[in-house]
């Protein structure tokens, strides 16, 4: 009795197994072995920073002619080199860069215009009378950039995002998420930042924020490399000339220029 059952079920199993094996061979999707190789090289985290649907999507994209093979932010230089070896194509190696938030307007530093109640998302809050901050270049601090970061490199502290340079891969997803465009990718070589975007005149900036650039021009005078210029009441550093000496940082009366000494985030230090 029991033998019958075993034979019967075993038979069915064998039949379907063979059937599946046959169909699997017959209808197999042919995959390019190079694509397979590239997929193995890629980190496989499917972060989407390259702009394609996961690592497989980007691997398929890499096969095309004129495709940019240097887009994997997570893998960095190593992965790009490996891909270029596989494809036998030269790849432009991007400099390691890190996202920097150009505002220091914590709670208590930058003034609020009104109390905001509603959706805790920067782009939604920005639609209501153009945001609750007095300064139109101030960080709204609802943490939309933190939510979109695939690497968990951003955390919010008193209404300002802190970026962990160790974790940040420079993918740039947060740049698109910020409704005020306050985030920029800057090469890790450059350590001095003017953390303000306000184009208002100094007096107005003083009224709105304790740590805004007031366009006083002291940094322009003190810079030995003549790397700083004033544009629309805002100090702008020319990174081709800057040598990270940090003299402007000492001179800045509002502490809106910051020197990032270690690999830790700028704001961790200040």
């Amino acid at each position: 009795m029991i033998l019958n059952s075993i034979l019967f079920l075993g038979g069915i199993g064998l039949f379907f197994g063979l059937g599946l094996a046959f169909i699997g061979k017959k209808l197999a999707v042919k995959r390019d072995p190079t694509e397979e190789k590239i997929l193995q090289i890629l980190p496989g985290s499917n972060c989407g920073a390259c702009g394609f649907a996961g690592c497989a999507g980007y691997a398929a994209e890499c096969l095309g002619e004129n495709a940019d093979i240097g887009k994997c932010a997570l893998g960095g230089e190593k992965v790009v080199r490996q891909i270029s070896d596989v494809l036998g194509r030269e790849a432009k190696i991007k400099e390691d860069s890190v996202a920097v938030v150009f505002c220091q307007g914590k709670e208590g530093v930058s003034k609020n215009r009104f109390t905001y109640q509603g959706i805790t998302d920067c782009s939604a809050a920005n639609l209501i009378s153009e945001g609750n901050k007095e300064c139109e270049w101030a960080c709204l601090g609802f943490g939309t950039c933190m939510e979109v970061c695939p690497f968990g490199a951003i955390r919010m502290d008193e209404g300002i995002p802190l970026i962990d340079e160790e974790k940040c891969r420079g993918c740039g997803i947060c740049i698109a998420a910020c409704p005020r465009g306050l985030i920029t990718l800057i090469s890790k070589r450059h350590r001095v930042y003017v953390l303000c975007r306000s184009k208002e005149k100094g007096k107005k900036v003083r009224e709105m924020c304790k740590k805004g650039c007031i366009g006083c021009g002291l940094c322009v005078k003190v810079c030995p490399m003549e790397a700083i210029q004033l544009k629309d009441n805002l100090a702008v550093i020319d990174y081709d000339k800057c040598n990270n000496c940090g003299k402007c940082v000492e001179k800045c009366p509002t502490k809106s220029i910051v020197l990032n000494k270690s690999s830790l985030s700028v704001q961790f230090l200040s």
Binding site: I119, A124, L127
Partner: peptide, 13 residues
């Protein structure tokens, strides 16, 4: 829930 704000946000997007 601020439903109207969600609607206005979605319309804008």
């Amino acid at each position: 829930r601020p439903i109207v704000q969600y609607v206005k946000w979605a319309k804008e997007k």
